[in-house]
Design a protein around this nucleic acid. Structure first.
Lengths: 168, 168
DNA sequence: CTTTTTGCAAATTCTTTGCAGCCCA
DNA sequence: TGGGCTGCAAAGAATTTGCAAAAAG
């Protein structure tokens, strides 16, 4: 089977390749390269993990203090549209952005609800089915997805059976 | 195929159980039962799927036009705190709420990244594959999952040949 | 030169809060 | 009665937008 934990061997995503995608996107859409955009994209793509607008702006302003909020918002929107960024909501009112490194090489998560062990995995069959589902639902085209499985790891299964009733 | 929007045909018989949990919560916390709260909780618990504040308020106001936004927000917050509601973020600025007990009859989401159209679906094959994946990853047992597909709806795709069309 | 982009501030949108009066226990 | 509730409007917070000046192609 092809189900096995994803190994993160290479720490450095190919920044140049991502920048290339960015340039392509700009070109194809008749958009312009500007100092601000280059700076924001540069700072964004070098990230690992997620970031809020405010913090990204702070980093950008270290190099160019005149950049405004609106430009960061607008650039992140472009990045999202071209598939280089993805938004995450963590429940506080702030949107975070993360590098959607390579959509085709996306990994999903399996989380043990007892011990919080988290495994990452990929499964091509599931992703293909997702595409089919989307197509069947009127002709959608999936550009990315988020799949989280919550379950019991073997170790945790030995103990207790019950549900988890409400608290408070 | 079995991919089709989820139809919410029947009402659920364990509504009374959920209402019981609500009453317990109020009692234990020294909170009061009011007409507005009863009405909001009633309308909320009969849901299958997710709902935005605005729509819930609309339904509530059909029975009592004087209910205000703030009361709905405040009541949903209580419902969330007592475990009867869960919040969802789909990337448009709106928080949606769903009945937390809905886990047994789980549905997934397909979201258009351009126009924020949200469809719900169920797919048994995907869920079975999820179980298999989990089993392969050392013997996990899946108890619930969250799957969100982000894509382009046909309408959003129609324009221009490129990647992400329609930027305002 | 023309068209896009920027930065600012004002405008939106969603959600929370302050408060006087109302209601439930 | 008395402390919680409600509705309204104002306040907040995050994000978007209008516009004149600035930059890019």
């Amino acid at each position: 089977m092809t189900d096995r934990p994803v190994l993160h061997a290479h720490a450095q995503p190919d920044m140049e390749r991502l920048k290339g995608r960015w340039s392509d996107y700009l070109r194809r859409h008749g958009l312009k390269t500007t100092q601000q955009r280059e700076l924001i994209v540069e700072q964004f793509l070098k990230l690992t993990g997620h970031i809020a607008i405010e913090e990204l702006l702070a980093r950008v302003r270290k190099r160019n203090p005149k950049v405004g909020y609106a430009t960061v918002y607008r650039t992140l929107k472009l990045l999202t549209e071209c598939g280089l960024a993805a938004t995450r909501q963590f429940g506080d009112g702030q949107t975070r952005y993360e590098v959607a490194d390579d959509i085709a090489h996306h990994h999903d998560h399996l989380i043990c609800v007892q011990c919080s062990l988290i495994l990452e995995f990929e499964n091509a069959e599931i992703e293909q089915l997702q595409d089919e589902v989307a197509a069947n639902l009127g002709g959608f085209k999936v550009v990315r997805h988020k799949l989280e499985l919550y379950g019991l790891c073997p170790k945790a299964m030995g103990q207790k059976g019950g549900y988890c009733p409400n608290e408070s």
